[in-house]
Amino acid sequence: MLKAVKVRLYPSNEQCSIIADQIDAARYVYNRSLALRKFAYTKFGIKVGKFDLQKRVVTLKDREKTAWLKKADSQVLQQSISNMDKAYQHFFKGGGYPKFKSKHHSCQSIQYPQRVKIENSKIYLPKVGWVKCKGLREDVVGKIKTVTVSREANLYHAAILLDDGVNTLPVCTSTEAIGIDVGVSLVAADSNGGQIKPLDLVRELTKLRLRAQQLSRKSKGSKNRAKAKSRLAKQNLRIANMRKDFLHKLSLQYAENQGIVVVEDLKIKNMTKSAKGTEEKPGKNVKQKQGLNRSITQQSWGLFFELLEYKVIARGGRFIKVDPQHTSQTCNVCGHVSKENRLKQEKFVCKACGHKDNADVNAAKNIRDRGIHGSNASHQTAA
């Protein structure tokens, strides 16, 4: 079974320079190949295949203007084109059109498909050499499939994809179904009565604002501005990692203990659209909508659902998405639907039968029942 392990890298200054050269080369090859494929099809209707593009890398290395590509490992450049081709295949299946890579993006990466070795808390990267790493446990063994080296906020990491030879994860024996309602005041409320509070990031967000203010006061192009920018990027990365860790643990908890997990099929992009409107038709309550959008994005609902889905299915469970319409306004006891049932954000009081419950827990129960009995659920089951 494939397993991903992420470790921190500590390259020397010389190794940092080599990795930077490879990142630049991989990005250049990716963008050039994407531009050529787009131009050939738009202008002449010709489809340029992946292998034809990979052969052109040899030609580029022989040219005087692009001879600097020789600094990069050949397989890194070939893999860059493969990743571009995968982006195209994803586009044909209904995804977004491939975009050109920017050198100004906060996270830059390269991928090694072969010839990487791990030994005594060190990892060997072609062209780079042996690099010290931290976070690699001794019990992590298996055949290395790919290694993705990334640079973000002047920090280096390696994501190692391993095949550990294990066919499946421990199967969850529970057949119990649980509904999960996500929100702003609570990250999640489940049909068993569980209420998960948001991660306390007040201190970290205060530091983030301070770092942003410090950056705004520095002169453009100065060394102090570069240092301030690095500190801001590190703080952003720290907050992102804290959120990921929290959501990984929460999703694992549900996946290990529940055989059937039901969530709402939310259109998060539509929910977080701007309310500014146009000059002819300006939006209403713009500041309130901005605050709500910020709260939704900070809770990372999309990431939570993504982590939850693959963990549940990997353990032999069922992951179900249902129509979210009126789940928060419907009484779980009598089925009465009314906006007046939720006069307050956290309380649910049915106007028909008098049933009282936490509003989010009541919604989670409706989500669970709709997933089990409803006809509007989209089911996803383990293979």
Rank of each mutant, 00 (worst) to 15 (best):
V128H: 00
G96M: 10
R115H: 04
K101P: 05
C133L: 15
L155N: 11
S121P: 02
S102C: 05
V131L: 00
G142F: 07
Y97P: 02
Y112R: 04
D163N: 15
G129H: 03
H90M: 04
K103V: 12
V166S: 01
K117H: 11
Q89S: 15
G94H: 12
W130S: 02
T146Q: 07
E152K: 14
S106I: 05
R137A: 14
R137L: 11
I144P: 03
K117S: 11
A158L: 12
G129V: 07
Y97E: 09
T146R: 09
P98A: 04
G129E: 02
V128G: 03
G96T: 15
Q89H: 13
A87G: 07
K122A: 03
S102K: 14
E152F: 06
I110M: 08
I123G: 00
Y88T: 01
H105E: 09
A159T: 15
E119D: 12
Y88E: 01
R151W: 00
C133A: 06
Q114R: 12
N167E: 08
L161N: 13
H104N: 12
S109F: 08
G135I: 13
H105T: 10
E152V: 14
H90W: 03
A153Y: 11
N154D: 15
D163R: 01
Y156T: 08
C107M: 13
N167C: 01
G135W: 11
G142E: 07
L161D: 04
V140S: 03
D163G: 03
T148K: 13
P113L: 06
V128P: 01
K103E: 02
C107I: 14
Y88W: 15
I160L: 11
K122E: 05
K134S: 14
V128N: 00
L125Y: 02
A87T: 10
Y112M: 03
G129D: 06
H90L: 13
Y156W: 14
Q114S: 13
K143I: 04
S150Y: 05
L155H: 08
P113R: 13
R137W: 02
N120K: 15
K145T: 01
Q108A: 10
S106R: 12
P126M: 00
I123V: 13
S106L: 09
F100D: 00
G129L: 08
V149A: 07
T146G: 10
K145P: 02
Y97V: 12
A159K: 03
L136W: 15
V128F: 02
E152P: 01
F92R: 02
V166T: 05
P98M: 00
S109H: 07
H105R: 14
P113G: 06
Y112G: 01
R137V: 12
I144E: 08
Q111N: 09
K99C: 09
I123A: 02
I144Y: 11
T148N: 10
F91M: 14
D163F: 01
K127Y: 06
G165L: 12
V128L: 04
E152G: 06
D139G: 04
H90T: 14
S121A: 13
K117D: 04
I144T: 10
T146M: 08
S109R: 08
K132Q: 06
G142Q: 03
A158Y: 05
S150E: 02
G142R: 06
